Simulated assay, not measured.
Amino acid sequence: MVEYDVKHLLELTTASNDQVHSVVAFSLRAEFKTRMPANVIFIELIGDYLQQFTQPCFSDEQLRQFAARLNMAVDSRKVLGKLHMQQFNA
């Protein structure tokens, strides 16, 4: 399946790139052999992590557009997955 870079998918400008922070969240079942970077956390701590960013970055309209783009990407991945399975089974 196609992997999407979120910044590209949301069509963010270079100026907006600094306002988006990457984070990876794992369930408590995950066990790490090394120390995790600050942006790699357990899912239960995601709220605490996000609260450190207090400055509004995007308007409500921009957030609605982002949500629509992300939903379209999810839908297209589902369609591609179904097509792939159909081709695999054929």
Rank of each mutant, 00 (worst) to 15 (best):
residue 16 S to A: 15
residue 11 E to T: 01
residue 53 F to Y: 15
residue 23 V to C: 14
residue 52 Q to G: 13
residue 66 F to A: 01
residue 10 L to H: 01
residue 31 E to V: 10
residue 41 I to Q: 00
residue 46 I to P: 00
residue 10 L to R: 04
residue 51 Q to P: 00
residue 26 F to R: 03
residue 42 F to Y: 11
residue 31 E to S: 14
residue 4 Y to C: 04
residue 39 N to I: 10
residue 36 M to G: 02
residue 53 F to H: 05
residue 3 E to M: 03
residue 82 K to D: 14
residue 73 A to T: 00
residue 38 A to T: 14
residue 34 T to P: 00
residue 82 K to I: 05
residue 78 K to C: 10
residue 14 T to L: 12
residue 82 K to H: 02
residue 39 N to D: 15
residue 51 Q to W: 03
residue 54 T to F: 05
residue 61 E to N: 09
residue 49 Y to W: 15
residue 25 A to K: 01
residue 58 F to V: 07
residue 26 F to M: 09
residue 23 V to S: 04
residue 58 F to S: 07
residue 17 N to L: 06
residue 24 V to D: 04
residue 9 L to T: 03
residue 61 E to L: 11
residue 42 F to N: 01
residue 18 D to W: 02
residue 28 L to Y: 01
residue 5 D to W: 04
residue 22 S to G: 09
residue 34 T to R: 10
residue 29 R to A: 00
residue 88 F to E: 07
residue 33 K to H: 05
residue 80 L to Y: 02
residue 18 D to S: 15
residue 59 S to K: 03
residue 68 A to L: 09
residue 57 C to L: 09
residue 65 Q to L: 12
residue 82 K to Q: 09
residue 29 R to D: 00
residue 42 F to C: 04
residue 36 M to D: 07
residue 25 A to N: 06
residue 44 E to K: 14
residue 11 E to S: 13
residue 21 H to E: 06
residue 71 N to I: 05
residue 62 Q to G: 01
residue 9 L to F: 10
residue 41 I to Y: 00
residue 48 D to W: 06
residue 44 E to M: 05
residue 14 T to Q: 13
residue 19 Q to N: 14
residue 31 E to Q: 15
residue 90 A to T: 10
residue 88 F to Q: 13
residue 38 A to D: 12
residue 72 M to W: 03
residue 88 F to N: 01
residue 85 M to N: 12
residue 27 S to L: 11
residue 3 E to Y: 06
residue 50 L to K: 15
residue 21 H to C: 00
residue 36 M to C: 11
residue 55 Q to C: 14
residue 59 S to L: 03
residue 14 T to K: 15
residue 16 S to L: 06
residue 27 S to H: 09
residue 19 Q to E: 13
residue 57 C to R: 10
residue 79 V to Y: 07
residue 49 Y to F: 15
residue 18 D to F: 04
residue 71 N to W: 02
residue 47 G to W: 08
residue 29 R to C: 00
residue 19 Q to R: 13
residue 28 L to D: 08
residue 23 V to A: 11
residue 87 Q to E: 07
residue 56 P to T: 03
residue 48 D to S: 13
residue 77 R to M: 13
residue 84 H to N: 14
residue 5 D to K: 02
residue 64 R to D: 15
residue 28 L to Q: 11
residue 80 L to K: 12
residue 85 M to W: 08
residue 24 V to G: 00
residue 1 M to K: 09
residue 68 A to N: 07
residue 25 A to Y: 04
residue 68 A to I: 11
